[in-house]
Design a protein around this nucleic acid. Structure first.
Lengths: 342, 342
DNA sequence: CTGAAAGCGCTTACAG
DNA sequence: CTGAAAGCGCTTACAG
């Protein structure tokens, strides 16, 4: 499948590749190329089904007009939603989006970054894993166009867009307390990253603010990447082990999903046996019977902000450090009700 | 951020770029380069943090070691599952996967194909939209490495991997009939593509095989891409309009999800008011109360087969036309029960 | 054992 | 108004 090049067009048209290149790049007027010649070249390109080779163009210009989006898992609805916003927006500025999932695996994340760097990607929108900190530092030192989303390194001079995880968690737990719950557990991820730490801290502080003691056995940490069945089992054990616990805060959507499965297996009724709030929204939470109260992250705003920041960098408008923290919102549904007294 | 090239390494090492290239490509032995020199170059590349420029390499060799996966919607769990299988498998053969979503939009699909063609992608795994038929024909004529998944053009000489949609639908509807239902409706997508046609045909034939007349008013077609709220409304109207209908077959996962929402809004009980089966599985179907009976597609097998076919083409092992049809399986859960007599 | 040179398909400063 | 030429960073056939 030998593709046609500007050389082919030039030969057919009887002109130089320079002229063809000018015309094809819309510089005919600027370069004062005659309209007749311009049209001839355009027609020829069309009829030969010419497709510019972006590798050659990228090699020559140093720009691929491509932005990479690196997330934890593109099939997670939270990231899928964000990526759609980002893709649509970038498209309007002539940038292509290339997405990659790290699965929160440092090795995979490093490999992805290497791969992207080799492909001369213009800009990066990244949900970082801890293991790529070094790479990000280097990129930052090299003035690469880059913005972090969802999670970030507070001490690194890299722009980010995130959500007030602390407030989202605090608000959720406070809501449960105000509804009369006091034996509130938390299921979170055993992974030392800001966003999860902040959610955990919101949980603790909400309890403390209401003079409720923190009980270590109401805290369940699940290792990241645990197989679904194992995670469900861990949560089931946790629930069975703590009969006094009557409410659980799940710090992310898949944990909430596992939780619903566990409670279903245990035949625990939501909310009469167990009140539930999860971070992140999903069809499952919305349509579950009863529907699940959630902390919704404003993914449209996250996407918009990330694109604005990366474009400012790419278009050379601004390289200033931006640290955007957006407010999540508690969507009250049916999974937290006044508990039966006694 | 000027990156280091083999020229830099060559200069530092006091050798030619040829030698550096040989070493970096693991041809030191073959080209009989002295071990000392080899190590020196390797060390140098390491310490200079050399990253090969894949654009240059791709331009020169004509191969980018990249396969594109074009699906309808990467956030649909069915496609997300397939893509993970494909990505992992290709990775083991040194190929990168680049994924794109068409959203079943012909214009977007064409734009994606153009973009990929310009980027010298080595192979294509495609869930085609109707509008890219022409492009696929051209690619096929040019011997491009390519395989279609999920849907295909039966009359085009292009390999594909799909599921026996007819059998899946037939089995579902026959199951409902055997459970005692006879007023079985169908909610499908108004879109003229094989896979949906086959599912619809399975529905019709199952009814016919059991001497149940086809009633046009039990057939609801939803335009593809209809906003969620509108689709839910359309299904609600459909359900309300046909009080005699006591079972519905949904031909794809998001329709099933809309259906559950509609039934919930209408306060219809599954299965006592309405039995439900949907094509494709999901957490929502599995965890819903009651859990939803589904036709599960063997996504692992789909992915494996697609990769095997594309690799055979890429590695030049085989270009033969392969038409793989896999069997889906009915997963019986709680959403179809014997209806109350009368 | 190693290197000079051509060339992949573009873009663009320079010249006329 | 248009073209010859250099060069982006690689790989590789050819030569010695």
């Amino acid at each position: 499948m030998k593709s046609v090049s500007i050389k082919d067009i030039a030969r057919e048209a009887g002109v130089s590749t320079t002229t063809v290149s000018f015309v094809l790049n819309g510089k005919a007027e600027e370069k004062r190329i005659s309209p007749d010649l311009k049209n001839k070249i355009l027609k020829l390109a069309q009829s030969l089904n010419y497709k510019p080779n972006q590798l050659a163009r990228g090699l020559r210009t140093g720009s691929t007009q491509t932005v990479a989006l690196i997330v934890e898992d593109i099939s997670n609805i939270f990231f899928a939603n964000i990526s759609k916003v980002i893709e649509d927006e970038l498209d309007r500025f002539g940038y292509r989006l290339m997405y990659c999932s790290t699965e929160n695996n440092d090795k995979k994340a490093v490999a992805i970054m290497e791969m992207l760097l080799q492909r001369q990607i213009d800009g990066f929108i990244i949900t970082p894993t801890i293991g790529i900190r070094k790479i990000l530092e280097q990129l930052a030192a090299n003035q690469a166009a880059m913005v972090l989303i969802d999670r970030y390194f507070p001490d690194l001079p890299i722009s980010y867009v995130a959500v007030d995880n602390y407030a989202g968690a605090f608000q959720s737990v406070a809501f449960m307390i105000n509804q009369g719950y006091s034996n509130i557990g938390i299921v979170t991820i055993e992974y030392e990253q800001v966003q999860m730490e902040r959610r955990y801290q919101g949980y603790e502080d909400a309890l403390r603010a209401h003079d409720i003691p923190i009980k270590p056995n109401l805290i369940q940490k699940i290792p990241f990447g645990l197989a679904a069945t194992d995670a469900v089992e861990a949560i089931s054990n946790f629930v069975s082990r703590e009969p006094a616990m009557n409410a659980i805060f799940f710090t992310t959507n898949y944990l909430g999903t596992y939780g619903i499965e566990s409670l279903k297996l245990l035949r625990k009724n939501i909310p009469s046996d167990m009140a539930v709030i999860s971070f992140d929204d999903s069809d499952l939470f919305r349509l579950n019977s009863p529907s699940i109260t959630v902390v919704r992250q404003p993914f449209e705003e996250i996407g918009h902000n990330a694109v604005r920041i990366i474009l400012d960098q790419l278009l050379g408008k601004s390289r200033e450090l931006r640290q955007v923290i957006l407010k999540p919102s508690l969507i009250v549904r049916e999974s937290v009700k006044q508990p039966v007294p006694g």
